[in-house]
């Protein structure tokens, strides 16, 4: 049975995802501009763990924050607790501590904790001090502008990275439009991020390369310009493919984001929705597109 939404085929395939460690950082500032400024700097060069050593992006604009000021939440993912902790220390230290008016809080109530503020405090050169407020320790680090407040420990938990779907379109313009609509819809889902530029990847990859020094290389089966020279997975009439990569704190969040994204992406000019996988041999998690869409439809009918 062929599944379709608005005439767009949903391929019977699955996205293959991997286990990682996730964290949530809350950044507040005097206004939203400066909170987002720190968050966007902090999440720079954090698209793929392969070369960036972590993956991160802004999750949500927050209405309620620990200190009552405007703020945003940022999700970060790393291969291990230790590597994630080091990335948090480096990035908060270089991008949030340095940013005017900011403060930085843990946003994840997880059993595992890593020391972040407890490491950054040494920047205070002996003038730092701590306060325990409502059971949590915070470090006050004096800076030229005033004082930087950062929580001592940040929660980390097992998470999922590499959820994805591919948008196969008739031309680059409509494919980009569909991807933008998908990302816009997915940005409202808590617990997920799309770590690539604007949430969209144009250079999906396959594992390995003919060059031994390269771990990943272009996904030639989905490159329209290689239709004639490589084994292709593209149907007739497809001239552009964009990928949405999704990282989440749990499976359910990724499923919800996948569903909302696919529904939004099914616009005229899109021929197929597919997903990237490695034959099911590498990733711990499999997200079957048709199953996700069916379950969501069923839930919607039940709710109605």
């Amino acid at each position: 049975m062929t599944h379709s939404i608005n005439g767009v085929e949903i391929e019977d395939t699955f996205a293959e995802a991997f286990g990682m460690w996730g964290s949530r950082v809350i950044i507040t500032a005097v206004n939203r501009k400066w909170a987002r400024e720190a968050a966007s700097k902090m999440t720079g060069f954090a698209t793929s763990v392969i070369r960036c050593h972590c993956e991160g992006a802004i999750e949500l604009d927050l209405k309620q924050t620990p200190d009552g000021r405007p703020g945003v939440s940022v999700l970060f993912f790393g291969f291990s607790k230790d590597s994630l902790a080091q990335q948090l220390i480096d990035r908060i230290g270089q991008c949030v501590l340095t940013c005017p008016t900011t403060a930085c809080f843990n946003g994840l109530d997880a059993g595992d904790k890593v020391s972040v503020g407890g490491q950054l405090r040494f920047f205070g050169d002996g003038y730092q001090s701590s306060k325990v407020i409502a059971g949590c320790r915070y470090w006050r680090i004096p800076v030229m502008e005033g004082e930087f407040l950062v929580e001592d420990k940040f929660g980390v938990q097992p998470a999922v990275a590499g959820g994805n779907f591919l948008i196969l379109g008739s031309d680059p313009g409509v494919t980009l439009q569909a991807a933008e609509l998908a990302v816009e819809a997915m940005q409202h889902v808590p617990g997920v991020i799309m770590p690539f530029p604007g949430g969209i990847v144009r250079s999906g990859s396959k594992v390995g390369s003919r060059y031994k020094f390269l771990k990943a290389s272009t996904n030639d089966a989905f490159c329209p310009s290689l239709r004639g020279v490589a084994d292709t997975d593209l149907p007739e009439g497809v001239n552009s493919v964009l990928e949405i990569v999704i990282n989440g704190l749990d499976v359910q969040s990724i499923e919800k984001a996948t569903c909302e994204g696919i529904q939004a992406a099914c616009i005229p000019g899109i021929r197929r929705i597919s997903a990237g996988n490695y034959g099911g041999n590498l990733g711990k998690f499999k997200f079957y597109l048709q199953k996700i869409m069916e379950e969501t439809r069923r839930n919607d009918r039940t709710d109605a």
Binding site: D67, G68, I133, A134, E147, L149
Partner: peptide
């Protein structure tokens, strides 16, 4: 020392 708005006080007062 100075006049400023320490963040930790916001947390205590809100609590």
């Amino acid at each position: 020392d100075c006049s400023y708005s320490p963040s930790f006080l916001k947390l205590i007062l809100r609590d």
